[in-house]
């Protein structure tokens, strides 16, 4: 065990723990946000840079500060390490910069995005973003495409976290999509029309922190916060069978894997569970799903981000988008 201090809070963690995970063990406000790191995906992290923190004291042996901010998701703690996250103005400034970078080419089409309400980028933008964009240039755009019949790729929204490629590499037996191109013209693609179709490929949707990969069987059926999430399971010979059903009345609109409070899936599910069991009777219902942090589905967050305004804006825009199902504003917001 090694002892580390994060924002003045001391904790003992196992050797080889990353700063991010040490902070998660403390919990609360000292936990840096993470957009690309994903605990269960090997080699993930280090790319988005929102989790940057300041190491003011490297270790007991080497008391020097680290020369630059470090990615907390990929930096291991050392005994005696002292870290600043929200207590460092430098970190907050850098993070604000990173969020701005992530947003300059983002379409900000939350009102018509299926991920709205459970989007890590949306949450991050509310917490760290600046009110007014300084970006006057043309935004990058891509056509949205189907990669396979179940997954919609809305590349314009992608933040290139690489998580979906790790899923394809590590969970499925044949990766057919990847990162193509270079720099700010890189994109997620199959290059030539190919279907991502594979027992576990649907998990790409769940790991995607934004609305770049969405479930085609759910698109535009409802805003996520008008659904009622339920924990449920079934006997499945391919996966754990443990899921969350997003329901409306007795309709199952969407099935996803369960996410922890850092919006990470702990146990992946197969495509059969995800796509082929859309009747409540297919499932053993365990009860309402408690969703916290990182989601506007959660009551707490709702208050923080001026939900009403967001909702009004969204409704205004949805009204605009004729032909798409209008939400019922009276539906309860949480499970």
């Amino acid at each position: 065990m090694v002892k580390v201090t994060i924002d003045g809070i001391e904790i003992e963690v196992a050797e080889g723990t990353t700063i991010l995970n040490a902070a998660r063990q403390i919990g609360g406000d000292v936990v840096p946000p993470a957009m690309c790191y994903y605990t269960s995906l090997k080699d993930s992290g280090g790319k988005c840079r929102v989790c940057l923190v300041k190491v003011t004291h490297t270790s007991t042996k080497d008391p020097r500060p680290m020369p630059k901010l470090v990615a907390s998701c990929r930096t291991n703690v050392m005994d005696g390490m002292v870290i600043q996250n929200i207590t460092s103005p430098e970190v907050l400034e850098a993070r604000k910069g990173v969020v701005e970078f992530l947003l300059i080419n983002h379409p900000l089409d939350c009102p018509i995005c299926d991920q709205a309400g459970e989007c890590d980028l949306q949450n991050l933008a509310y917490e760290h973003g600046v009110a007014k964009t300084r970006y006057e240039e043309e935004r990058r755009t891509f056509e949205k495409i189907d990669i396979g019949d179940k997954i919609k790729l809305h590349m314009t929204r992608c933040i290139l976290c690489y998580r979906c490629t790790f899923v394809a590499d590590q969970l499925t037996d044949n990766r057919v999509h990847g990162i193509l191109g270079r720099g700010d013209t890189s994109e997620i693609s199959t290059y030539i029309q190919k279907a991502v179709d594979n027992d576990f490929s649907g998990n790409m949707i769940d790991v995607c922190p934004v609305g770049a990969l969405t479930d085609n069987t759910f698109r535009f059926k409802s805003r996520v916060w008008f659904t009622k999430p339920l924990d449920a399971h079934r006997n499945c010979d391919k996966c754990c069978g443990k899921v969350v059903l997003f329901t409306k009345g007795d309709e199952v609109l969407r099935v996803s894997a369960r996410k922890d409070k850092y919006a990470e899936v702990t146990e992946y599910i197969c495509n059969e569970c995800r796509y082929d069991h859309k009747r409540l009777s297919d499932w053993v219902i365990e009860g309402p799903r408690h969703i916290d942090r990182n989601s506007v589905i959660s009551q707490n967050h709702y208050e923080k981000i001026d939900l009403l305004k967001l909702k009004q804006e969204i409704e205004r825009q949805i009204d605009f988008e004729k032909g798409k199902q209008l939400p019922e504003p009276n539906q309860s917001l949480t499970a």
Partner: peptide, 22 residues
């Protein structure tokens, strides 16, 4: 630099293009 950024990390991927355009 905009042309040569590998695009892996967001500050460089987005920032180099921004600076070039301005």
């Amino acid at each position: 630099y905009h042309h040569e950024s590998c695009g892996q990390c967001s500050p460089c991927r987005e920032g180099t293009g921004w600076m070039e355009k301005v």
